[in-house]
Nucleic acid binder design. Structure first.
Lengths: 229, 229
DNA sequence: CTTTTGTATTCTGTATGCAGCATTTTCTGT
DNA sequence: ACAGAAAATGCTGCATACAGAATACAAAAG
């Protein structure tokens, strides 16, 4: 992927709704996040404030603030007097994260079955169907994005802000790994099959089943990505 | 508690080990954290950069960086063009956090039984005994601190960095609530009893039992603090 | 040829200055 | 006297400037 670093475009408006001024901080944070996830900034790379700021067309002050924010999210590491470096995750780190993610999604599954409205479930079904379509066509990138969306959406159904937060942090940390990991056809098929089970269980509001499938799905996720780590 | 705000003392050394220079950022972050937890900055309060910086004896720049860091931790909220305010947690928020914390500690319990060394368990036993001593004397503050330490220590035993991270974030967010919550004698006794069960289960390395007790303990925690929220 | 030390450069850490937005106060018209 | 508008104040957001630490390089000594 390795795009070249492009200056940050400061979009003036967020579209419809109340006219909200540019929030440079947020823009910078997500921009840097993407750069890390997509590999423009690979693990171990030092985040050079002067250079990076110049490339993005931003002064050091807001850049530093964004870096501190990302540090708290765990994407970069702050070394006193030596700046920030992109955090490197070991295989064990990834496995640990998946273990926690598994537990969180199991919980999310249970809560979702209790709290979700039919309409919300229907939306996820739509995402799922679209994802399957992408799978059949072999569109990996869109598949990947829809996959993430579905998992996040199920967590949203649980209507538990803390759960969504924790899940989001881990999901973000893992994005880079998943972004790289390219499982073979048979494993991909298995993943899709698990997703199918998920949707069925959700529509049936079968707590135990949904929780079980989500857990199994993430256990298998480890098998799928372990080679890439 | 409401201490008056005191200038930040810049400690020169962290004790033994390699002589490390003052890390103002870290100091500021934990100082602000403490101020929020202990109620010097109550929920809804705007964090006035000029004023606060002057009181702490620090310029606005590092202060802003620390605030951004805390924002990512979820202790303060950033409002565009209007600075940062201390986040206010609703009863549902607290309940949600405890739900997630429960799940995480259940997981920690299972992992801890597998991974912990005898020595590590002995250390927790020591903390526990000390805590019980404090309970018998009625020393609430020390009891509270040791209580937190024990929970964190058990999570540490699991040797899962991601788990420890997520647990730490939630623990921090809840600290303020727990700091306030003063349960009555009978509930306090029940909590101590649960801790007793925990230690016994841990020493027996009884995964199921430890996990169950930890879960129950946190369910009850909600009963103990719900009045304070 | 290797090692060590002194110096120069580069980068981080912190302070300060300036512009724009939000809010409040004051002024004006009815 | 009251409503609305305009000015004034205060604060945030960003940029720049300065000081100190770390690193890299070069020269000299073993």
């Amino acid at each position: 992927m390795m795009n070249e670093i492009t200056p940050l475009e400061r979009r003036a408006d967020g579209g419809p709704g109340p006219i909200r001024r540019t929030a440079l901080h947020d823009t910078l944070v997500s921009h840097l996040r993407d750069m890390i996830i997509e590999g423009d900034l690979s693990p171990g790379t030092r985040l050079h404030e002067g250079q990076l700021g110049e490339q993005l067309g931003v002064s050091r002050t807001p850049l530093r603030e964004a870096i501190k924010y990302l540090a708290s999210e765990g994407l970069v590491e702050l070394v006193p007097s030596r700046g920030a470096v992109v955090k490197r995750f070991s295989a064990k780190d990834v496995h640990d994260m998946l273990t926690v993610l598994q537990t969180l999604e199991e919980l999310a599954g249970k809560l979702a079955c209790e709290a979700a409205s039919d309409a919300a479930i229907a939306e996820i079904r739509a995402l799922h169907d679209e994802m399957v379509r992408r799978y059949k066509v072999g569109d990996r990138l869109q598949y990947y994005k829809l996959n993430q969306q579905i998992h996040s959406a199920i967590v949203q159904l649980a209507e538990n802000a803390a759960l969504a937060d924790m899940h989001g942090v881990l999901q973000t940390r893992l994005k880079r790994i998943r972004f790289i990991g390219h499982e073979g056809p048979e494993k991909w098929a298995a993943a899709v099959a698990e997703h199918d089970e998920m949707i069925v269980a959700l529509e049936a509001r079968d707590k135990a089943k949904l929780s079980e499938v989500l857990g199994r799905h993430l256990m298998n996720a480890w098998e799928r990505v372990r080679a890439s780590v």
